[in-house]
Deep mutational scan, measured.
Amino acid sequence: MADQLTEEQIAEFKEAFSLFDKDGDGTITTKELGTVMRSLGQNPTEAELQDMINEVDADGNGTIDFPEFLTMMARKMKDTDSEEEIREAFRVFDKDGNGYISAAELRHVMTNLGEKLTDEEVDEMIREADIDGDGQVNYEEFVQMMTAK
């Protein structure tokens, strides 16, 4: 299944994987998964984290390695993001709930994920998604960005 991913997608997933893999040992533990999910405003229980890991832990060693992570991402993409997942993601970014993602809100979430971005990089990300040019990202623009192939 992971063989249907483009090189660009694999590179993006590698970057995402390293955000989860806090200690850089090449595997994601339940603790690391929990840290990232909490930084995104989720509050999973230990059991939920274990279930999430077990779902993709092909070799049964209790952690997720990069090939397992790729399989999980490929699977998720095949079920292409349901509207509800996209709306949920939008809410994570839209901290003040005004229906727009500002540069400050984007920077806040990315920083929580451990991504240190310059102001230019954040502005560039907003510009790429900002179709109507108002300097922020509304829900429609967010959907376009998330579903762009």
Rank of each mutant, 00 (worst) to 15 (best):
E15M: 02
E15P: 02
G135Y: 06
M1G: 08
R107T: 00
T45A: 14
M37W: 14
E48Q: 04
T63F: 05
A2H: 04
S102F: 04
G34K: 03
V92L: 13
E121I: 04
A11E: 01
D123V: 07
D21P: 15
R87M: 05
F20K: 06
D57R: 15
Q4R: 12
A47W: 10
K14Y: 03
N54A: 00
F90I: 08
T27H: 03
S102H: 10
V109I: 10
A104K: 03
E128K: 09
Q42F: 10
F13N: 00
D134Y: 03
D59M: 09
K14I: 00
D21C: 15
I126V: 12
T80C: 04
E120R: 01
K78S: 14
D21I: 01
I28Q: 00
I53W: 05
Q42N: 04
K149D: 04
H108T: 09
G97I: 05
P67G: 03
M72P: 07
T111I: 12
F69G: 00
L40W: 03
M72K: 05
V36E: 11
G114Y: 04
K76N: 07
E88M: 06
D57C: 06
K14R: 10
L5R: 08
L5C: 05
D123H: 04
N112C: 03
E55D: 11
T35E: 05
N138R: 02
D59G: 12
E88R: 02
M77I: 12
A89G: 00
E105Q: 00
V143C: 08
V137Y: 03
G34R: 13
K149T: 07
Q9L: 13
D130N: 11
D123P: 09
L49P: 00
A2G: 13
A74M: 06
E12L: 02
K14A: 04
K149Y: 14
G60D: 14
E55M: 10
M73F: 15
V109D: 01
E128L: 05
K76T: 08
D23V: 12
A148K: 07
E128W: 09
L33E: 00
Q4L: 10
G99E: 01
T35D: 04
A103K: 10
I28E: 02
F90A: 05
E88F: 04
A47P: 07
K78N: 06
I53T: 13
Q144G: 09
P44Q: 11
E68F: 01
L106I: 14
T111Q: 05
G26V: 11
E105K: 05
M145G: 09
I126P: 00
D79W: 14
E46C: 01
D81I: 06
E55Y: 07
D25S: 09
M73Q: 06
D21S: 10
M73G: 15
V122C: 06
Q50D: 04
E48V: 10
M1I: 09
D79C: 15
S18A: 12
I101Q: 02
A58W: 01
F13L: 12
A104D: 01
A103L: 00
L33M: 03
L49S: 10
M125C: 04
H108D: 14
P44I: 05
I28N: 11
L117V: 04
T6F: 05
G60F: 07
T80Y: 03
F90P: 02
D25K: 02
M146Y: 08
D21K: 02
M125K: 01
R38W: 13
R38D: 00
E83Q: 03
T71C: 05
E32T: 04
P44L: 13
A148T: 14
M37A: 15
N43P: 08
G24N: 04
G34Y: 05
R38H: 02
Q4G: 06
E88L: 02
A89D: 00
S18N: 15
D23H: 13
S82K: 06
N43Y: 13
E68G: 12
G34M: 07
E46A: 10
D79S: 04
V36L: 03
F20P: 03
D57Q: 08
A16Q: 07
M77G: 10
A2F: 15
A129S: 12
T30K: 01
E88T: 05
F20C: 13
V36G: 09
D81Y: 07
D3Y: 06
R38Q: 06
N112R: 15
E124A: 13
T27Q: 03
E141M: 05
G60Q: 06
V92H: 07
D130G: 10
E105G: 12
A89R: 00
E68T: 10
L70P: 00
N98T: 06
A148N: 09
R127L: 14
E83V: 13
D134V: 07
A58N: 03
T147H: 08
T27D: 06
D65G: 13
V92A: 12
S18G: 01
F13I: 13
T118Q: 15
V137H: 06
D94V: 06
D96P: 06
D96L: 02
A89L: 03
G26R: 15
M77V: 12
D132C: 05
F13P: 00
Q9V: 03
T80W: 04
E55A: 09
E15T: 03
Q9Y: 13
L70G: 10
V56D: 02
E15Q: 09
E105F: 05
E85T: 11
S39K: 04
G62I: 08
F142N: 03
D134S: 03
D23Q: 05
F20W: 14
L40P: 08
K116C: 10
E84W: 03
F66W: 02
V143Y: 06
E12I: 02
E120D: 10
E8G: 12
K149R: 12
A47L: 07
A2R: 00
P44E: 05
L70W: 12
E140C: 06
N138E: 14
I131M: 13
G133R: 11
V143I: 12
V92C: 08
A103W: 01
I64W: 05
F20V: 15
T29F: 07
G41R: 12
